[in-house]
Amino acid sequence: MKGVFFVAKGVVHEHDQNLNVREIIQEKKKTKSFNNYTEKFIPKILFGIAAISVFTTIGIVLTLLTETIAFFKDVPFIDFFTGTKLKPLGENAVFGVLPLLTGTLISTAIAMLVAIPVGLMTAVFLSEYASEKTRRLLKPILEILAGIPTIVYGFFAFTFVTPLLRSFIPGLEPTNILSPGIVMGIMIIPMVASLSEDAMSSVPNSMREGALALGATKLEVTWKVVIPAAISGIIASFVLGISRAIGETMIVTIASGSSKNFTFDVTQSMQTMTAYIVEVTGGEAAAGTTLYYSLYAVAMTLFVFTLIMNMVAQYISRKFREEY
């Protein structure tokens, strides 16, 4: 609104100086060429700015790709993806990515075991059971939980959750995959909850009322009407949660240690792909070494994994969306 008055004021101002209409037109003609100039170039500049986000993606893919290709000259592709041993330092360095892949997948699985049930039940409560007042009280708390930096969750996992778990799981090591997995799950709860709740809230009330009128209880309405109707959004939220867990770095770096164990025992220390990247760069790997290139091969694997997950989420929510 202010802007409209701003333009108007300019015109009034010129009248104040007692210019006649012809002079105003002459005046306008002079500025017109400048205006034409800006009108022509502003869109081009803005397009250039918008293209930077595309260049960022291209930059990421190119840097990862070139160095990954260099890596596969040193280490055969098959050995990398089937190798169960990762020993990047020392004389006989071995580069097998499987220890990192299992670390990533196990921590992700633990996280989703926490995040999916709790997140979904939270979403159901907020969308179907809570009164407007309760919802307005609880939603900001979830938003706060979502806004806490991951480093704080890492500190929490390392100094609180691990000692707590060790008090009733005797075999648990000081750094292990279980504790960061659980904390990662807690971190993802708000994301699953709010995306699922959005999906459930967009199910029209008439469908609920139809089921209620047939004598269904609220639980039956939720289970047999609302969740099936919102299933695409709910599953998309799970997939996005998985992608988030795969890419999560600081929690696992702090609380899971750096042993490159190839194991399925959750009480052991394991390293994820993200934690490996932090460890290697933190050690200032010299450019040109196989160790340095391995960083990019691992990052590329990570990038491809999360990209596929995000695309699957987009595909699910686009393809299977029920429009009402």
């Binding site: 595309v54 930059g59 840097t63 990209l307 995000n310």
Partner: peptide, 25 residues
């Protein structure tokens, strides 16, 4: 629509990968 898809994909790239981009570029 390409730029839009690109931005939503960029939002899903793990932050550690951005670190690699920053380190390299």
């Amino acid at each position: 629509s390409f730029i839009k898809t690109n931005i939503s994909n960029l939002a899903g790239v793990p932050s550690v990968v951005f670190g690699i981009l920053g380190l390299t570029v």
